[in-house]
Every structure is written in C-alpha cells, then in structure tokens.
C-alpha cells in the first residue's frame, strides 16, 4: 500500500515536471515568435537588397522612419494595455504640428517652448478622447473617430489655401539622426519604467484583464485611463515636433494612416489586443521595428508602395492566425 502510493506519487511528480516544461516552452515559443519574425525580415531584406539595408545612407533613413512609429507605439502601448485603442493618432499628430507650424515660421520662439506646445496640444486632444471614453462611457472607437474628424477638419481648413512651409534653418540642429536616436532611447527607457515599475502600468494591465475586479481592488478607472492617454499624447507631441522639422511642411495628408500603422505594429509585435497581464512594451517596439524594416526594405527594392500594404495584410493575417489559440481553453456554453 505504502509502496504503491510512493509509485503513484513519483509518476505524478515526473509527469507534472514534464508538462510544466512543455507548457513553459510553449509560452516561450509564442513570446519569441515576434522576435523571430523581426530577425527573419531583417535577414530577408539584408540579402534581398544585397546589404543596402544597412548601408550608411540607409541607416539614417531607417532611424528617421522608425523614430515616429516606435515612439508613438511606446505611447500607444499604455492604452492598448487596458484594451483600448485610438484611431485618431495621426490626426492628433497633424494638429500638434499645426499648433507649432506658425511659431516656427518666424523662428524667434525658443525651441523648448515649441516642443512643449506640440506636446500640450496632443495631450489636450488625447485627454478629451479619454474623458469622453471613461466618463461619458462612449466606446473608444467612436470617441477617437470623432477626435480624428475634428483634428483633420482643423488641419484641412488651415492648409486649404496652401500647404504650410516652414523655414527650418533655425531649428536645423534638431534634425540630426543622432539626436533622434538619443531621444528615442530615452523615451523608450522612461516608457519602460512607467509601464513596468509604477502603479500606473500595473493598474492599466489590471483594467485590461477585468475592469470590474480591478475597480474593486482600488484601481481608479477614470484617472488611470486619462493618465494612459496622457502618456500617448506626450509621445505623439514629440513625434509631431520632429516630424514637422524633418518634412518642413504641413499638408492635409500629414499623419495620415499613422493610427492604423500603430495598430499593425501592435499586432505584429504580439501585443494582446485585449490588453491585460500579457501586455509587454517590448512587443510594441518589436512590432514597430518590424513594420519599419518591412516598409523600408520594400522601398529600397523599389517595390510599388501599394504592394507594401498587400504584404502587410498577409503578414497581419499570419500573425493573428498564430496567436489566435490563446482562447482555446475557454469554456464555451
């Protein structure tokens, strides 16, 4: 009897350990997938462009292109962590560019003030979206769609006569790839700390996991949602400032499609769209880098830009398909 129990126990423990290992590996596999995808795309384009991808001339291009999307993806991960999203990102960026465009024409406003105004405008817009969503309880799709139309409307009206060009001589120093690389690294660092090491990040993931349970555990819903949108706004503002300096003009198409690109990046990086506990900032960053490499690589190969969208769509499907079985264990009926 005693021996028998021992044997059962041993078999059980062994089995348990094995299963433990398998499931852990599975989890690791799924988390590793976006990284493998990034590496694959990097190697693919490295070979396909015969090394032109990492040539010095393209490197600064890469930094330019990845700057906006990575920076905004960092900000967006805060709202995606609680299961929200924002379609107005591109339009808000355009508006924040508009708010500083006239000031930059004359060139006698200190640069720091200009950056603050850009950030302030973007944060103002995202706060309004978040208040409509959390206080008035309007679906975030609707509230951000309204915000998109409002911002678009203002920008379109401002440039209806002619696109706004700015003389960027006085602020030229801000256009160096090195500075952008530094700003990006600092922002990613700060974002990572807020996301992982402060109460805000944890509260957001809790809200994404279960809003009611989170609120009953003392998470302040409205405050937390607003703060998440503030983080997004700050990133949009900074991205807008640098983008305006680089392009040195503002037209009705400025910022177009950015919101959707962020969405694609988030999915490519394996960030769960429902938010919650498995949200990781690195996913947003990996997704943004993958998307940048994809767009840049295809353009060096002088591929028609419309094919970029086609390939994005296919990749999107593959990734969604691979990460879909998350809900397999769910009890239906």
């Amino acid at each position: 009897m005693e021996a028998k129990r021992d044997i059962t126990h041993n078999v059980k423990t062994n089995f348990k350990l094995r299963l433990d290992k398998i499931s852990r590996n599975n989890m690791e596999l799924r988390q590793a997938l976006p990284f493998v995808g990034l590496l694959f795309i990097f190697l693919f384009f490295l070979i396909a462009t015969r090394g032109r991808l990492v040539a010095a001339s393209n490197l600064s291009n890469l930094i330019e292109q990845c700057f906006t999307i990575t920076l905004v993806a960092v900000g967006a991960s805060f709202i995606y962590a609680c299961g929200l999203f924002d379609i107005s990102i591109g339009a808000v960026m355009a508006l924040s560019e508009l708010s500083i465009a006239y000031l930059m024409k004359t060139g006698d406003t200190p640069i720091i003030l200009i950056i603050l105004i850009a950030i302030g405008t973007a944060v103002f817009c995202t706060i309004i979206t978040s208040i409509i969503t959390s206080v008035l309880k309007v679906n975030v799709f609707v509230s951000s769609l309204c915000m998109m139309f409002i911002c678009n409307g203002i920008v379109t009206a401002a440039v209806s006569e002619a696109d706004i060009y700015i003389s960027f001589q006085d602020y030229k120093s801000a256009n160096s790839p090195l500075l952008k690389a530094i700003v990006l690294i600092v922002m990613v660092g700060v974002g990572w700390v807020i996301f992982n090491k402060t109460r805000l990040g944890r509260d957001l993931k809790a809200l994404g996991g279960n809003e009611t349970a989170a609120a009953l555990s003392g998470v302040r819903k409205v405050k937390t949602y607003i703060l998440a949108f503030v983080c997004l706004g700050v990133c949009i503002g900074i991205a807008g400032f640098f983008s305006l300096i680089r392009v040195s003009m503002l037209s009705s198409s400025t910022g177009g499609g950015l919101g959707l690109n962020i969405f694609v990046a988030i999915v490519l990086g394996g960030f769960p769209l429902t938010g919650g506990s498995q949200s990781r900032m690195i996913s947003a960053i990996v997704g943004a880098l993958t998307l940048t490499l994809l767009q840049n690589g295809l353009s060096i190969m002088s591929m028609d830009p419309s094919w970029t969208h086609f390939i994005q769509g296919i990749l999107f499907l593959i990734i969604v398909g691979l990460s879909y079985d998350r809900s397999k264990g769910k009890f239906i009926l």
Binding site: A206, N210, A213, G218, S277, Q278
Partner: peptide, 17 residues
C-alpha cells in the same frame, strides 16, 4: 468576474490592492 482577474497571475492579483 469581480473578485479576481482570471487572466492574470496569482502574484498580479494579490499585489493589485
């Protein structure tokens, strides 16, 4: 639905409040 977040770890749940 209200006491714990099912899709989160034990640690995240206990530490939340």
């Amino acid at each position: 639905h209200e006491s714990i977040i099912i899709n989160a770890s034990i640690q995240e749940n206990i530490a939340l409040p």
